[in-house]
């Protein structure tokens, strides 16, 4: 796809030379080329190119129905693109080769949790599916990270929404993935749960992970990101580096982009 660098982007101080259209660049951790996804006559994702290096944190904003979750689903290998391809560390996401699955962790709208299994059982189950052998050390560490150590014996269905979200995050990070995909992680969280989640996401910015987050939450999305994109009607209508844009400035720009004024 072609990144649309609008006049507004310039006014926000985004240097055109720094616009990151890196498809095909060497050393990228996560790459997507010409990614398309159609549902019948509806085009959810329309030719997105993306290239992300180690340590980058991309937040994708966009209105409902822009195809953000579909994009994330394809980056996670959960959805097959109608056209285009995704690769992780240069290896295409082929269903026959499961190695790349070790490198991706995803936090979706849904938690992928079993309500009748305890917190520990859920993590142990997924740990075994990922072939992890050090679960006795890994599980307590992850639970401590998300603040659920005290709930280890609780069944997942007994947890509040915020706690389930944190457990889902622990599940997504259990195998220490290189690429972390987050789909609306702040949805339905109270300020306290959002704060815990923010702390965990901050820890992901350790320079060796690549993160793509889809969110409506401008404040959280801006705070975390090193790169920003606005997806409209299946395309990245704008993208650029996050150079400390203020929320209000970005909000104004976001609305301009979404409404086609920028």
């Amino acid at each position: 796809m072609t990144v649309v660098v609008s006049a507004s982007a310039h006014t926000l101080g985004v240097d055109e030379a720094e616009q990151t259209v890196l498809a095909g660049s060497g050393g990228a951790v996560l790459q997507a080329a010409g990614l398309c996804r159609e549902y019948g006559t509806v085009i959810a994702v329309d030719g997105i190119d993306l290239s992300m290096n180690e340590g980058e944190f991309l937040t994708v904003f966009g209105p409902n129905g822009a195809g953000k979750s579909t994009l994330l689903g394809m980056l996670a290998g959960a959805m097959r693109p109608t056209a285009g391809s995704v690769s992780v560390r240069g290896k295409p996401l082929l269903s026959s080769d499961t190695d790349w699955r070790h490198r991706i962790g995803m936090l979706s709208h849904k938690g992928f949790l079993y309500g009748r299994l305890t917190v520990e059982e859920n993590l142990r189950f997924y740990g075994k599916l990922f072939g992890l052998s050090d679960l006795d050390e890994r599980i307590p560490a992850r639970l401590e990270q998300v603040g659920l150590t005290q709930r280890i014996r609780f069944e997942a269905r007994q947890l509040s929404h915020g706690m389930r979200q944190r457990l889902s995050l622990a599940r997504a990070l259990l195998h220490d993935p290189d690429v972390v995909l987050l789909d609306e992680p702040y949805t339905g969280l109270d300020p306290s749960a959002a704060s815990v989640l923010r702390d965990v996401l901050d820890e992901l910015k350790d320079g060796r992970r690549t993160v793509v987050m889809v969110t409506h939450n401008l404040r959280e999305g801006l705070e975390m990101a090193t790169r920003l994109a606005v997806q409209v009607a299946g395309r990245f209508a704008w993208e650029g580096d996050n150079q400390g844009l203020g929320r209000k400035d970005f909000e104004r720009h976001y609305h301009d982009v979404v409404e086609g004024r920028a």
């Binding site: 996670a76 290998g77 959960a78 499961t98 190695d99 699955r101 070790h102 991706i104 995803m106 979706s108 709208h109 849904k110 938690g111 992928f112 949790l113 079993y114 309500g115 009748r116 997924y126 599916l129 990922f130 072939g131 997942a156 599940r171």
Partner: peptide, 17 residues
Amino acid sequence: LEAQDDAFQGVLMSPAP
């Protein structure tokens, strides 16, 4: 039971063949 919370999707996204 797998459909609750889309848990089966989590299984399918794991490396398990």
